[in-house]
Amino acid sequence: MVNAQTAGFEGNYVMNANGQTATLQIAPYEGGIAGQLTIGAESATLLGTVSGKQSEGLIQDNGNGQMSAYTAIVSGNRLDLTLLIVDPNTYQTTPVTLNFTRGSAAALQQTTAAAPARQTTSGSGGIGGSNSAVAKEWKNLLSNTRLTYMDSYSSGYGSNYGGYSVERKIELCSRGFFTYNGTSNFSVDAPAASGYSYGNNNGDGSWSVIDNGNGSAILQLNFNDGSAAQYNLGYQNGKTYLNGERWFRTTAADGGEYAPVSCN
């Protein structure tokens, strides 16, 4: 079941680390999360659990197989990843924190400035989180549509490899409910770590659009299990962005496999 905990971490993140672009891709994995961290030519695989807005687990260098503990905290579009680096000679540990922003570098340049995600919950329980002109425009744009996000990543060094693919679909119906479907494949094969997972996640509830007061809006999903997830909305050159990531927007007019099926 998709909930706000996994939805809050899932996606792409980017930062600049010592003049190099660092990327972090995260997908659901056996009730927790898995991901790939890449800095320049180096990459590492992480596996961890999620509790609220915090994740803890292990991260392994895909090149030399060395493992470290990590802690990650997500807040809106920001994710702080702290690695506990162990000196192989003295065995002393040093925490190193990487500050990521959600989205790819290219997508972030194309989206409008995003406000920090708020924890305000819509009181309407349906389409009507805000009656402002901005919110109404977004509700008209999103009603009876399917939003689809797709991403994949792979890396390897000789016999060591890791990768994942993820697809997420949100169907937003004018009657006030949504369906959330996601599939993810994750695989890793490196010294002291191996595994494979195929997940199929479904969740539904009500949705609303909230005007954040600075000319942009937030999509809020209220899941039936009582959790909630929020996405900063952006629109540029006919393309729709959620939290800085490109999502494909399709309607019944697109027909076939691309049309939303939940809103009939």
Score class of each variant (00 low, 15 high):
A107H: 09
Q54H: 07
E171S: 06
G162Q: 05
L147C: 06
P88L: 11
K169Q: 14
L233I: 08
D211K: 08
T112G: 15
Y258G: 04
V74C: 04
S155Y: 05
L46V: 03
L24A: 01
F186A: 09
Q230C: 08
L172W: 01
T97C: 09
N222K: 10
E245H: 05
A135L: 03
N264C: 07
D61Y: 06
Y13C: 04
D80R: 04
T179Q: 13
A253K: 14
N202E: 12
L142Q: 03
S124N: 12
F177W: 10
G226F: 07
W138S: 02
V166G: 02
I39P: 00
T38W: 06
T121C: 07
M67H: 04
A252S: 13
V209Y: 06
A190H: 00
I218Q: 11
R78G: 05
R118C: 10
G203N: 09
N243C: 08
V209I: 15
G63T: 11
S197F: 11
T38L: 07
G129W: 01
N264I: 13
S154C: 04
L79M: 12
P88N: 10
F223K: 02
N140V: 00
I127W: 07
N3H: 10
G11V: 03
L81H: 05
T45H: 08
Y231V: 01
N200I: 13
L98E: 04
K239T: 12
L47P: 01
G199H: 09
T93W: 08
I85A: 10
S152T: 04
L219N: 02
T49C: 01
Q110Y: 07
A4S: 15
T93S: 14
A192D: 13
Y258K: 14
A105Y: 09
A192K: 14
V261C: 05
T112V: 14
G76T: 08
G205R: 00
T94K: 14
C263Y: 03
A22G: 08
R146G: 00
T179L: 10
E257N: 14
K169Y: 06
G158K: 09
A4N: 11
S174A: 15
L24I: 06
L47C: 01
G129M: 03
N140P: 00
D204N: 15
T90S: 15
T6N: 11
Q60P: 00
N16C: 05
L84V: 11
A135E: 00
R175E: 14
G244V: 05
N222F: 04
I85T: 08
G158Y: 04
C173M: 07
A22C: 06
T82M: 09
T112D: 12
A72H: 05
A72N: 06
Y149S: 04
R246Q: 12
D225Q: 11
G156V: 04
S55V: 04
T183E: 10
V188L: 02
M67Y: 07
I127P: 08
G205M: 04
Q60C: 03
V14P: 00
N140F: 01
A114N: 01
L84P: 03
N64S: 14
G158P: 04
A228Y: 09
A4R: 10
S130D: 09
A7Q: 09
F248L: 13
N264A: 15
R249A: 09
S184D: 08
G199L: 14
G156N: 07
N181P: 00
M15I: 07
T71R: 15
